[in-house]
Computed example of a mutant assay.
Amino acid sequence: MPHPYPLRALGFCSIDDSCDPDILLSVSRSYSFVEWGVLFRPDKEGEPRYATESYVKDKLYKAYKASNGCMKLAAHLCGSRVNEVLRGDDSFLKTLVSLGFKRVQINATSVNGVDTSTLPSASKILRTVISGNRELEFILQRSEETRELWEPFDAEVEGNVSMLFDESKGTGVLPSTYTPPPSQYPVGYAGGIGPSNVVSVLESILKVSGEKDFWIDMESSLRSNVDGVDSFDVMKCQRVIRRVCEEVGLYQFCS
């Protein structure tokens, strides 16, 4: 039976080599609404927040296979990975599908290392890429900076496109207000969300979203300093899950 609460997913982003995939698998088996986000940016691969290729292809993929489909994975493209897509190169996207990724977020902002001067001409190219990869759901980061990329999709909707409201452009700043979701595609919200405020954020979004499903995504708030190393903190994810399940009252949403 579908849950009555309109929360589609909890997105936990910046999975990197500091994460034990078996722990991620255990969380996914208990809470199938959790989505693990991996940041892909070749010039930063191996740094905190950016998983290595071997980690994704070997360790994370092994956990995904063992999950029998309950582990949800999202690829958050940054830097040259976005520039490739905006030029029409979808070869990397094809590899993601084979590794279990079902959603791809296009972080087409300057803070994410993207050449934003190409955005005015890139929308048509991106549409071709999206229509040629129907097995993936594409998430467009919706902000003023990326308007020239996402706005054409408002008028001519693609069935496998979603929008993420994040005016902070991935910098983890909590917005003062939340935008009511358009009716034509799925939406998510990000920016400054974490264990300490997830309940109040959900309450604020519900005031503008009505009964429309949405997801929320978080990143910066899930990091901790472990022995001097910036690391992904699964315990913080579990705090978010616990607050959502207990304080929001989503007992039937949590297995």
Rank of each mutant, 00 (worst) to 15 (best):
L164Q: 10
V240T: 02
E211S: 15
D166K: 02
S14H: 05
L77P: 03
F101M: 08
G88H: 12
G194F: 10
F253Y: 15
G170P: 00
T171C: 06
Q105A: 08
D230Y: 10
I139C: 00
K72D: 01
N112V: 02
G88C: 10
K57I: 08
V114R: 07
V82N: 01
R87Q: 15
K59G: 01
H3Y: 13
L222P: 06
I125V: 15
Y5D: 08
P182Y: 05
K124Q: 14
M163T: 01
V38R: 09
S183I: 10
V226D: 09
F153R: 04
L99K: 09
H3F: 12
S255L: 14
K212V: 10
V104I: 14
S143Y: 05
D213I: 04
I15R: 07
G69W: 04
S110L: 13
S231T: 11
L60M: 05
F92T: 09
W215V: 01
C19N: 09
S231W: 05
R49F: 15
F214A: 02
G11F: 04
W150G: 02
D22F: 00
S176F: 02
Y5N: 01
E246M: 07
P6C: 06
L39T: 07
D16M: 10
F33H: 13
S131L: 13
V240F: 05
K212M: 07
C19P: 03
Q252W: 09
V161N: 04
P181T: 02
S121Y: 07
K94Y: 00
D230T: 12
P182F: 07
S143D: 05
L136D: 03
C70H: 06
F232T: 02
V240M: 13
Q252P: 01
R127S: 13
Y50S: 07
E156H: 12
E47L: 14
D217I: 08
P4R: 05
R87W: 03
S220Y: 06
R223I: 12
L93Q: 10
T179L: 13
W36D: 10
A190G: 00
P2H: 10
S91R: 14
Y178C: 04
F138A: 10
E45G: 11
Q141V: 00
C70E: 07
V85Q: 06
P6N: 08
S220F: 08
L73A: 07
E145Y: 04
A66T: 11
P181R: 01
T146E: 04
T128P: 00
C237Y: 00
K207A: 13
D166M: 03
S224V: 06
S168W: 02
L7H: 04
M71Q: 00
S91W: 03
F153A: 13
T177Q: 09
S26N: 14
Y64W: 15
Q141D: 15
V27W: 13
L202P: 03
R239S: 15
A66F: 01
V198Y: 01
E203V: 15
T128G: 13
V111H: 12
N160R: 07
